[in-house]
Design a protein around this nucleic acid. Sequence first.
DNA 1: CTTTAAACCTGGTCGC
DNA 2: TGCGACCAGGTTTAAA
Length: 271
Amino acid sequence: MPELPEVEITCVGIAPHLLGQQPRAVRVRQSRLRYPVPDDLGVRVVGQTVLAVRRRAKYILLEFAEGCLLLHLGMSGSLRVVPADLPAGKHDHFDLVVGDQALRLRDPRRFGAILWLVHPAEAHPLLASLGREPLEAGFDGAALRALCRGRTTPIKLLIMDGHLLVGVGNIYASESLFRARIHPQTPAGRLSRQRCERLAICIRETLQDALAAGGSSLRDFVHSDGASGYFQQQYYAYGRDGEPCRVCAGSIRRIVMGQRATFFCPHCQRR
DNA sequence: CTTTAAACCTGGTCGC
DNA sequence: TGCGACCAGGTTTAAA
């Protein structure tokens, strides 16, 4: 699924279609997502005004006076704004109908989520324990170093731990570490101040570049207005097992960390 | 507390 | 063409 940049772009893409609007219906075609879709969603949102559309970590939050509609795209989810009468496809599980349009969730793998959070939404267990936003002012080398202090966990797993830092998924974790020239298995607590500084910058740059590129191209992601997928970003490491490093021409390696594929250049990236 | 693996689900690709 | 094995962008939960 989308990582932070893709979720952010989705959020920005759908917002103008929803802000200030009052949904007139919800359609739940498949309620068995990651969590059961609440059956009283319609009661909560129909006729209520969308006051804000925002992102926290990889969650999209539609704010209403009484609570928030929380959307998560899981591994394969996408949100599009489509004509309200457009026939739904096999994996189009949910519509929020606004005027003659519908915000439509498509999610083949059904790891996504739709929940209703009463205010204060931030107190909900899913949101309460979330880590720092990497693009927020104040996330710098010192902040990252504080997260790393005393931890032996490999740095790649640390920057993917949503309770510490949000938004960095499997692709951008490998990409950020490549840019920072840090070996993914380096124990987090053993990174020098300088390397923490560099990694913090590289994480931000990696995410910013993806944002600028319109999000990485992903199999299941489609732009919110229905345009075709994103421009395919050129990765330095991700998915390039056995291919030449773009910096040193050495061979990119694939290992498994935390059950996830991890790509790095053994020559450029040091512990 | 930390670390690790299993679980949720569908579909695409690859080798035989 | 079919079929099984393996892979995929996330995150929670349970077990060790």
